[in-house]
């Protein structure tokens, strides 16, 4: 039983990952088919994991309602909206007319407006970031302002701005981001390796 509880999950993690990684090195058709099947299974299990997460949120909001907390009315709004979307989505599928209406007139506007309001957060962040404390902050500010000057009315009054901005974007920005990408890739590979080999087991959770 101890094997099933603690060793089997690590074996499954390693085995599933090995099949997918090894198909890049060995040209065995059956292996490639198995890897493709595993990726399909991944999508299916991920959908269940999503349901698990949604269940957790429903539990949280239901608890707030049953305890009659001051925020219960907002929790009720969340659960009612979720129920409507889910019922319509299950009843007439996500390609149905009512579901499309809900998506176009409820989900889309709030999603777009939420992103639009981040403009204000980002502006206040810019104010804090652009207070020139040292030469790095100065470079950051000049680069950001150049990007902002290349569009709209600024480009009319300052025709050279789009050309400078294009150069900054194509040469130093791409070069700097490439180094960040390489650094991030190394850390991703290292972390994935730790998970696959069982050195990192946080995802398996606790319990008995």
């Amino acid at each position: 039983m101890q094997f099933v509880k603690s060793k089997l999950p690590v074996v499954v993690t390693f085995g599933a990952a090995f099949i997918i990684v090894a198909q890049y090195y060995f040209n065995i058709p059956a292996w490639k088919t198995l890897a493709a099947e595993f990726l399909r299974w991944n999508v299916i299990i991920a959908a269940f994991a999503l349901a698990l997460g949604i269940g957790g949120i429903v539990k949280l909001h239901w608890g707030r309602i049953s305890r009659r907390q001051p925020t219960a009315v907002y929790s009720a709004a969340t659960l009612i909206t979720l129920a409507i979307f889910l019922f319509v989505g299950l009843y007439e599928t996500t390609r149905g007319k009512t579901y499309t209406w809900l998506y176009d007139f409820i989900y889309n506007p709030v999603a777009a407006t939420s992103y639009a309001t981040t403009f204000f957060f980002i502006t206040s962040a810019a104010y804090r970031a652009f207070r020139i404390k040292n030469s790095y902050a100065a470079v950051l500010m000049i680069s950001a302002i150049l990007m902002m000057l290349q569009v709209g009315v600024f480009s009319v009054y300052l025709p050279v701005a789009p050309k400078i901005a294009a150069w900054v974007w194509n040469i130093p920005t791409t070069a700097g981001m490439r180094a960040v990408t390489i650094g991030a890739a190394l850390s991703v590979v290292g972390n994935a390796f730790r998970v696959i080999t069982g050195l990192e087991r946080g995802h398996l959770g606790g319990g008995e």
Partner: peptide
């Protein structure tokens, strides 16, 4: 990197 972050931020 500061140039890259600034441009991305902008």
């Amino acid at each position: 990197m500061m140039i890259a972050f600034g441009a991305t931020f902008g």
